[in-house]
C-alpha cells in the first residue's frame, strides 16, 4: 500500500454558519419563545381569576400568613394604629368582600404588599420613612386598589409560574436573558396595574381627608433620595415609574377637582 500524504480537509467538522448569525437566530428566537410563554401564563392566570371570585379567595385565604415570605416584626405598637387606619380607609370601599388584615414585615426596605385573602404587608422600613398619616394612607389605599383590581393574585400567580419556569432553565446566562425578556413583557402590564392602584388609592385618600395633600410626598422624597448613582440600579428595578406616577396623580387630582392642600394629620407615633 502506498502512503499518500494529504492535508487535512476543512469544512467538514466545522459548520459554515457565521457565529453571529447563529447567535442572533438563537437570541431572537428564544426571546420570542419566552415572550410567548409569559403571555400564555398571563392569559391562563386571567382565566383562573375569572373562575375564582374575590369571595372565594377571601374565604380560602382568610387567615393565611406566609411565614416564609415575611418576618413578622415582634410587638410593633404601630400595628394597631395601622390596622385602625386600614379599617377607616376600607369604609370607602363598602362592598369589599375582604376583611383586611395588616402585618408589619421586619425589613429595612420601604415596601408594601397585597397578598391573597386581604392581607396587607407593610415593612418596618416604610413605617420609619412615612412622615404623616396622609402619606401612609395613600400607600395603604394603593394596596386596597390592588385588591380591588385583583392584581395581587396576578402578581402571585405570575411569580409562582415563572419561578417554576426558571427552575427548569438552570443555565444562569440563559435564565438571565429569559428574566429580562419576561421583565420587559410584564412591565407593561404591571405599570398599568400600578397606575390603576394609584388612582384608587388617591380616591380613597380624598374621600377620607377631603383633600389629597401629601398623598404622594413619599414618592417625591424618594425621587430626591434615590438620585445618587449607587441607588440607581435598585431604584430602577423596584420603582420604574416614580416620577411618572406623581405626574399622573397630580393630573388625576386636577381633573377630579380635588383639593391639593388641606390639614395634614400627623402620625400617632
Amino acid at each position: 500500500m502506498r502512503f499518500v500524504a494529504k492535508q487535512p480537509k476543512e469544512g467538514i467538522n466545522v459548520s459554515d454558519t457565521h457565529p453571529l448569525v447563529e447567535a442572533s437566530t438563537l437570541v431572537v428566537g428564544l426571546t420570542a419563545i419566552f415572550v410567548v410563554i409569559v403571555l400564555a401564563i398571563i392569559f391562563m392566570i386571567e382565566v383562573a381569576l375569572f373562575f375564582v371570585s374575590a369571595e372565594d379567595e377571601a374565604n380560602l385565604f382568610g387567615d393565611w400568613l406566609p411565614e416564609d415570605l415575611i418576618t413578622v416584626a415582634p410587638d410593633d405598637d404601630r400595628l394597631v394604629e395601622i390596622q385602625l387606619l386600614v379599617d377607616r380607609l376600607a369604609r370607602h370601599w363598602p362592598d369589599s368582600p375582604y376583611t383586611f388584615r395588616v402585618e408589619i414585615d421586619d425589613s429595612e426596605t420601604a415596601n408594601a404588599m397585597a397578598l391573597p385573602g386581604g392581607l396587607i404587608i407593610v415593612t418596618r422600613g416604610l413605617l420609619d420613612r412615612v412622615e404623616s398619616e396622609n402619606e401612609l394612607a395613600f400607600v395603604l389605599g394603593h394596596e386596597l386598589g390592588h385588591f380591588k383590581n385583583r392584581d395581587h393574585l396576578r402578581a402571585l400567580g405570575r411569580g409562582i409560574v415563572l419561578a417554576m419556569f426558571f427552575a427548569v432553565v438552570t443555565d444562569s446566562d440563559v435564565a438571565g436573558i429569559g428574566i429580562k425578556a419576561t421583565d420587559i413583557t410584564i412591565r407593561g402590564f404591571s405599570r398599568r396595574q400600578e397606575t390603576n392602584a394609584d388612582e384608587f388609592g388617591l380616591a380613597v385618600v380624598n374621600s377620607e381627608y377631603g383633600h389629597v395633600d401629601e398623598a404622594w410626598r413619599l414618592f417625591e422624597r424618594w425621587e430626591v433620595e434615590n438620585d445618587s448613582v449607587i441607588n440607581l440600579v435598585t431604584y430602577l428595578s423596584t420603582h420604574p415609574e416614580s416620577g411618572d406616577r406623581i405626574i399622573d396623580m397630580k393630573r388625576q387630582a386636577e381633573a377630579e377637582g380635588w383639593l391639593l392642600t388641606g390639614d395634614v394629620t400627623p402620625l400617632n407615633w
Partner: peptide, 15 residues
C-alpha cells in the same frame, strides 16, 4: 453563552 442557548432546544453546537 450561545452554546447555553443552543442547549435549550438542541442541535449542533456550531460555536
Amino acid at each position: 453563552v450561545i452554546a447555553g442557548l443552543r442547549g435549550l432546544i438542541g442541535g449542533r453546537i456550531k460555536t
